[in-house]
Amino acid sequence: MSSTMISSHIPDLDLITSYAQREGTFFSRVSPWTKFTGLLLVILLITLTRNLVICGVLYLIILGLYASAGLPVKKLFAWYTLPVLFVISLVGIMVWTEPGTPLFSLNMGLFALTLTDNGLILIITLLLKALISVTYSLFFLMTTRYQHFSAMIYRIFPSPLDQIFLLAYRYLFLTLSMTGAIFKAVRSRGGGIIHSVRVQGRIFAEVFALVFIRSFDRAERVHQAMIARGYNGKYEAGTDMPKPGLSGFCVIGAFVCAIALIVLMVPNTGGLY
């Protein structure tokens, strides 16, 4: 467990960044812009399609990409916890009343909950869509260098949004580490033992408040240090980024054509409205 890892089911940013900095695989050398366009196209496709087979195939392809980049698959499955929970919390309630051929019923006394084939397909499709998005996002994060992400943030967002984003991204790691350290200190003196919701809530609130206060203290020190070097409200993150090559354009072009074909030819696609 790394120092910043507070909940094991949440992706560890330190681990993600250390993978990103390795630059050991082919995917690390692909232009970040190509991978970013790929992300947009993946999102477009899973927004447009409702077809379970397409979602299944796309998921396997992306999982294959993730694994072939040497990224940790076991950890990925642990990181699926919250996305799966989000999908189930939204659709898990609706799925029982979905029209279709009943598969089984749960008798709740006053009423019965029936799961239909459409309900089952619906939840599996939405789960696959969520997993596709998570897996590609993490693949993108873990094969793209930190400085390239920073340069993308600087180029994409207007000021002051880019400045806030860049500073937050830089100090996120230290804040996570600080939060982890405070919790370790609390636990080392028995603070992790559950006394009551009220006592537990108070301990957590004090830790959270401390995280905010220390963050604001640091914000002031960082700001002073920036002013001391002539900060006037704007700073650059000007790392050069590799531009997409011909092969990058070809991959993107092929992906766009595939999406167009899928939208036109495959049933259950066309989620425009």
Binding site: L176, I227, G233
Partner: peptide, 24 residues
Amino acid sequence: RRKITLAAFCTAAAFAIFQVSLPI
């Protein structure tokens, strides 16, 4: 300009806290 720095650290703190699972 201090607001920009404070907003950035507010983001970092809120995101870090989001990662903590409350045992409730």
